[in-house]
Write a protein that binds this DNA or RNA. Structure first.
Lengths: 254, 254
DNA sequence: CATTTGAGTGAACGTCTGTACACTCAAAGC
DNA sequence: GCTTTGAGTGTACAGACGTTCACTCAAATG
């Protein structure tokens, strides 16, 4: 935030190169409602872009407005404050994540290996929706309380959906709801850790993307193996066998 | 003679109102070095206290100085900037965490159950060093790049230490270094997720502390079971048996 | 004892912030 | 066609920010 100030000296802000500075003052045309929506989207997009370098708390209303090509006061026509914009951004950023879950569930990659497919889809989505994932992980434990809450709520929903999926895969009634939820939580947090690692991969050499994904795949497979062993030492062998199938095909490290 | 220092400037500026504000201006007494160290510590403490509500990026140098009872300019006698203070704070906050690892390793709780003991120690430390853990988790993916780096480095060290421990527990040469690191990473991220959940427990009813710790224990046990099964389906059964012992005693959900 | 040192002071600076207010003027509604 | 609406404008202000500078004055030094 500090080094940015070096750009805007006490010049007139007039004599800049006419073609330089690609500041688009919101594309024109369309009905009133369309134009408003476009400006609103521009504000969200700009914030998402800026979050790549600083956290939401470090981004000012004025800067967002400036980058979106409107005057600071016009910001209020769309959002009450930056905090409210942040909460809205959670919803928007969650959309690709929800799509990801849907993709993973239908087994789009469809190689018959659920884990491999899921991890591969995760990698693709993080690559193509980098900014959204960055926003979510950065602000999950960040400074703005309302935004943190919103993310937390969505993530809980995510976990409970996965719990349902797991229940289906484990023959439903052999595992307690508590154990299912515990396992789903472990998987979600493993995937989140993977997302965070992926996002830090450039700028931090040493681990490359593929390596992280391979590790995530093995971690999930380890968990699946654990599921197979969880109850197998006693109670219902046929359910345990079913769970174990999730972990297959297992191909340990060379 | 322009070095006439006898300027009749508007010095005055003797003592202000004796009872200005209830701000403690750094406890007095001791040598110069001691007083300096105390002020320095006050700056760190104040920042740690303020981080409970906002992120580091949202805390100003002036506010920290004010709360520590010194004038803004005096801040520079101790730190070049808030960013540098942040990096220093990482080091300081890591100390309790390092102590925790040492405790866990020696099995201070000493019930013979490594997992139970570790989780219990984790819970205790989070309770008694709340602010430090909050700082670390909040800033791990936060806005200040240098702080993020510092935390990342320390956490990597943590993981590699755990890798060594795992190597010892798994008979050293049956598992590849890569697999050991993968597993250690999974365990660390599980524990970090637990820390984060613990920190959000109050202010967010529904899950209480004990519940989170029980879940973490089960998650780690699930992982340990996974380790037992990882290689057992083929290669070196006696090593697998050894690993499996880590997971015991296993007492699945009621 | 006289001298040097350096943590803390206080005023001042230029800049950026969020927000208030009165305004413009094209599209929407009647 | 006349009126209403509302997204975007421009000016203005008070407060907070980081940083500068010349300073004080007790402790450390010798």
């Amino acid at each position: 935030m500090r080094d940015v100030t070096a750009l805007s000296g006490p010049n007139g802000a007039r004599s800049l190169h006419p073609v330089m500075e690609g500041r688009r003052p919101v594309p024109e045309g369309g009905s009133r409602a369309e134009r408003k929506e476009r400006t609103r989207q521009a504000l969200l997009d700009v914030t998402l872009r800026l979050i790549a370098q600083r956290s939401l708390a470090g981004i000012s209303l004025r800067e967002v407005a400036r980058e979106a090509g409107i005057v600071p006061t016009a910001f209020y026509r769309h959002f009450e404050s930056m905090d409210v914009l942040g909460v809205e951004l959670v919803d928007e950023s969650m959309r690709p994540l929800r799509q990801m879950i849907r993709d993973a569930r239908r087994g789009r990659a469809g190689h018959g290996d659920i884990i491999k497919g899921t991890v591969s889809i995760l990698g693709e989505h993080v690559r193509s929706h980098r900014a959204q994932f960055q926003f979510l992980t950065r602000e999950r434990y960040g400074g703005v309380a309302s935004v943190r809450r919103a993310i937390d709520t969505e993530l809980r929903l995510f976990t409970s959906e996965l719990t349902v999926d797991l229940a289906r895969l484990t023959a439903a009634n052999d595992w307690s709801a508590e154990d299912l939820e515990m396992t789903a939580d472990l998987m979600v947090s493993t995937m989140l850790a993977t997302v965070m690692a992926l996002l830090e991969v450039d700028g931090r050499r040493g681990e490359d993307e593929q390596q992280i994904l391979v590790r995530a795949e093995r971690q999930l497979r380890l968990i699946a193996l654990g599921m197979g062993a969880w109850r197998s030492a006693g109670s219902r062998p046929e359910a345990a066998r079913r769970v174990r199938a999730v972990g297959r095909p297992l191909r340990p490290a060379t």
